[in-house]
Design a protein around this nucleic acid. Structure first.
Lengths: 201, 201
DNA sequence: CCTACCGATCGGTAGG
DNA sequence: CCTACCGATCGGTAGG
C-alpha cells in the first residue's frame, strides 16, 4: 500500500479478480487468444482499464502464467508437501495432479500443457516463462522421487527417466480426456503410475 | 481434370505446394495463427488468391489437417506396414514416430500434438477433425498391438492401456524436446517403450 | 479507471 | 488468379 487514497489497493483487488478470469480464458482460447478486448468485455472494464492494470499483452500473458503457477502450487504441490516425504508424498503429488486435471481446475484442462504446446515454437519471454514452469515441475517430481529413494522406499532407479514417464502419463491422460470427454484416461493414468511404482525397494 | 484449358490443373498444383507451407505455419503458429494473410505473403499470392484456392479459413484449417494426415501416414504408418505384422511392426511404428518427431518433419514437432492442445477446448468442426485424427492414431496402435498378441508375440494384456501408455511416452518426448531443445527425451522414450515391450508372451 | 482515437491486420466480398 | 474495398478486431496511446 503505497498511497493513502486507496487507488493502489483497489487496483490490486481488480488485478486479482480479473486475473482469475484471464487464466481461464488463456486455458481455453490460448495465451494468444487472451486478448485485451475479450478480457475487458468479460471483466466489464474498458480495454484501457485492462492496459492500466496489466500493461502490454505480453505482460498480461506473463501475469496469467504466474497466476496459474500459484494456483497449481496451491492445488497440487502444497497439499503433497503436507504428506511425509517418500513414496507416500510421491503418490499424493501424482494423485493431486490427476484431480487437478480431472476436476478441471482450469476450464480447458491443465493450463501448462495447453500453454507449452501453444508457445513451444514461438520464441520470446512468454515461451521462456512456460519452459521454466515445465522444467520446475519436472524438478519437483524428481526431488520427490529422490526423497523416496533416499528413504529406501523406492529402489535406486533412473530419477529423470521415471519423472519423464510419470509426467507423460499425466499429460497423456489430460489430453485424452480433453479429446474424448471421458474419465477412462484418468483410470489408465492411475494404472500406469501404479505399475511404475510397483518396484521393490 | 474437369476442364480442358488447365485452370483446374494449375489450381491443384498451387494447392499442393501452398498446402505444405500451410501445414508448417500451422505447426509453428497454430491453426488459428494460420491466417489467410500470412499464408498469402509466404506463398507470394494475394489474400483472395488463397481464398480462391481453399475457401474460408475453416476450410483452410481442415485442408491443413488432411495434408498433415497424409504426410503422417506416409512417414510413420506406411513404412511400418511393410514390416511383418506382430511385435516387429509395433516396434517399427513406434520408432517411426520418434523419428517423425525428432527429425522435425514439421518445424514445430508433431502437428497433431500441437493442434490437439490448441483446439481441445474450442468446439467446432476443426476440433472434431483433430479429435478424429487423435482417435484414429490410437486405433492404429491398438490394431498393431492386437496383431502382436494374436501372433503370440505379446502376452494378452490390456490393449487400450498399453496404447495409451505408448502414445503418452511419445507425446511426452515430443513436448520435452520442444521445451528443452535436447534429444535426451527421445532416448528416454525409447527406454520407456522398451520396458513396456519387455514382457514375455 | 474512462472515452476517443490510431494504424495494422483479421476474414472475407465484389468485380474482373 | 488480381486489385480494391468492407466492417470488425487487434494492441495499444492520448488525455483526462
Amino acid at each position: 500500500m503505497t498511497t493513502v487514497d486507496g487507488r493502489r489497493a483497489r487496483g490490486d483487488v481488480s488485478r486479482a479478480s480479473v486475473m482469475r478470469l484471464a487464466v481461464d480464458i488463456a486455458t481455453v482460447q490460448g495465451l494468444e487468444g487472451l486478448t485485451i478486448g475479450t478480457l475487458a468485455t468479460g471483466a466489464n472494464l474498458s480495454k484501457s482499464g485492462i492496459v492500466s492494470l496489466f500493461g502490454t499483452k505480453e505482460q498480461l500473458q506473463l501475469a496469467a502464467i504466474e497466476a496459474a503457477r500459484q494456483i497449481f502450487i496451491d492445488v497440487v504441490i502444497h497439499p503433497a508437501l503436507q504428506v511425509a516425504g517418500g513414496r507416500a508424498r510421491l503418490e499424493a503429488l501424482l494423485e493431486n495432479w490427476i484431480a487437478y486435471s480431472e476436476t478441471r481446475v482450469f476450464t480447458g484442462g491443465c493450463f501448462f500443457a495447453a500453454a507449452a504446446a501453444e508457445m513451444a515454437s514461438k520464441p520470446g519471454v512468454v515461451r521462456d516463462a512456460i519452459a521454466q514452469q515445465h522444467n520446475e515441475w519436472d524438478e519437483v517430481i524428481r526431488r520427490v522421487i529422490t526423497r523416496a529413494i533416499d528413504k529406501g522406499e523406492l529402489p535406486p532407479l533412473d530419477v529423470a527417466q521415471l519423472a519423464y514417464e510419470m509426467r507423460s502419463l499425466l499429460d497423456g491422460a489430460n489430453m485424452d480426456s480433453l479429446m474424448g470427454a471421458s474419465t477412462a484416461p484418468y483410470s489408465r493414468a492411475r494404472a500406469g503410475l501404479r505399475r511404475l511404482l510397483a518396484v521393490e525397494a
